[in-house]
Design a binder for these strands. Structure first.
Lengths: 139, 139
DNA sequence: TTATTAATGCAAACTACTTGCGTTTGCATT
DNA sequence: AATGCAAACGCAAGTAGTTTGCATTAATAA
């Protein structure tokens, strides 16, 4: 669906800033933080305040357009388009590259764990850390 | 080993604050943040500044006495005694209880993933979220 | 016992994020 | 096209968690 229609669909007003944010998320294909969004918009001559970015992302995550992503070793909040698919990320500790892993190794595990512990499990968070092929060479 | 000897062993001075912090970590048996440490020490009539706690924990984590623990949904840093065992935590989203899971479901997975991706993988972080039996009742 | 070095407290700085409020803008209605 | 109103926005200030510089104090080796 086109960006404008995605917003209209959820009853959110179509503004240059909001469509700009969504275009950035579409293009980069990895979770981004607010500063990266600001920089990318500035490059395209769109001035935007950080609080606007935070609020826009908050709104859009409430209606399921975007998704908040937290990494355990980073206090920042990242955001990505919510395509309704569960996945995890492989992190390069040197160049910070993110590789999406879309097959989750924990589906069955979580079910079994729920049974064993009597917890009602609703989700999990997994991040895998290492060095990408390129950064291994450089060392 | 006794707390005093653990510190002496690593060349750290034995102070009331440091031994106090370690006693707290020993007793609580779950990762704690700096405020919980401060409160527990205050209860035992030990006044301590937050920056002292941060610095003591930083020093002690550099030498492997304690370990930093990050949870993906919480910006705070938690700390636990470093017993050199890999484990994960089950989080209750309501009462915030933490249950340690000491069998890791990802050992083989990580090895295979390393082969497949040519990444040199050094570790991972897994947190599992849900509701504990008690909190399910309350609802 | 003293001298040296690490540890500590305090205040200020810093990072990431949030909030209050006055202004502007999108858009439904006329 | 003009109007009105709620939503979006910018700015400045506030908050939470953590870090840092510097002067003071305390631990321990000599």
């Amino acid at each position: 669906m086109e960006i404008k229609n995605i917003l209209k669909d959820k009853g959110l007003k179509i503004t240059k800033k909001r469509t700009g944010i969504l275009k950035v998320l579409e293009k980069v294909e990895h979770p981004v933080d607010v500063l990266e969004i600001k920089d990318k918009l500035n490059e395209n001559d769109i001035e935007i305040n950080l609080s606007t970015i935070y609020r826009a992302l908050e709104n859009m995550s409430e209606v399921g357009i975007v998704k908040k992503v937290n990494f355990s070793d980073d206090a920042r909040i990242f955001f990505e388009l919510d395509k309704n698919v569960h996945h995890h990320y492989l992190h390069c500790l040197k160049c910070k590259a993110l590789v999406m892993i879309d097959s989750c190794p924990l589906k069955d595990y979580q079910k079994n764990l729920a049974k064993k512990t009597n917890y009602n499990l609703v989700g999990h968070n997994l991040d895998i850390y290492g060095y990408c092929p390129k950064c291994q060479e450089k060392k």
